[in-house]
Simulated assay, not measured.
Amino acid sequence: MAYVISDACVSCGSCEGECPVGAIAAGDGQYVIDANTCIDCGSCAGCCPTGAISAE
């Protein structure tokens, strides 16, 4: 089960640097998580200032 980023994302980029496998990238207006690369560690969710990241 991969993590997902909701519309609450403000594109601050804090999650991208926290991902140990590089599954997060800038998308169209917000960041996105590649479900095939995500290892479900939750590092991104813990650092998101808006709480936009959650388990799918």
Rank of each mutant, 00 (worst) to 15 (best):
Met1Ser: 07
Met1Ile: 12
Met1Lys: 11
Ala2Asn: 13
Ala2His: 11
Tyr3Ala: 10
Val4Gln: 15
Val4Lys: 15
Val4Glu: 15
Ile5Pro: 09
Ala8Val: 04
Ala8Asn: 10
Ala8Arg: 10
Ala8Cys: 00
Ala8Gly: 03
Cys9Gly: 04
Cys9Phe: 07
Gly13Gln: 06
Cys15Ala: 06
Gly17Met: 06
Gly17Ser: 09
Glu18Phe: 09
Cys19Arg: 02
Cys19Ser: 06
Pro20Phe: 11
Val21Asn: 06
Gly22Asn: 06
Gly22Trp: 05
Gly22Ala: 08
Gly22Ile: 08
Ala26Tyr: 13
Gly27Ser: 12
Gly27Gln: 13
Asp28Arg: 15
Gly29Trp: 02
Tyr31Cys: 11
Val32Glu: 02
Val32Ser: 01
Val32Met: 07
Asp34Ser: 00
Asp34Leu: 00
Asp34Ala: 00
Ala35Leu: 04
Ala35Gly: 09
Thr37Ile: 15
Cys38Pro: 08
Asp40Gly: 01
Asp40Arg: 07
Gly42Arg: 06
Gly42Asn: 07
Ser43Arg: 09
Ser43Met: 08
Ser43Ile: 03
Cys44His: 05
Cys44Asp: 02
Cys44Trp: 07
Ala45His: 00
Ala45Asn: 04
Gly46Glu: 08
Cys47Asn: 03
Ala52Gln: 06
Ala52Thr: 10
Ile53Val: 03
Ser54Lys: 14
Ala55Trp: 13
Ala55Asp: 12
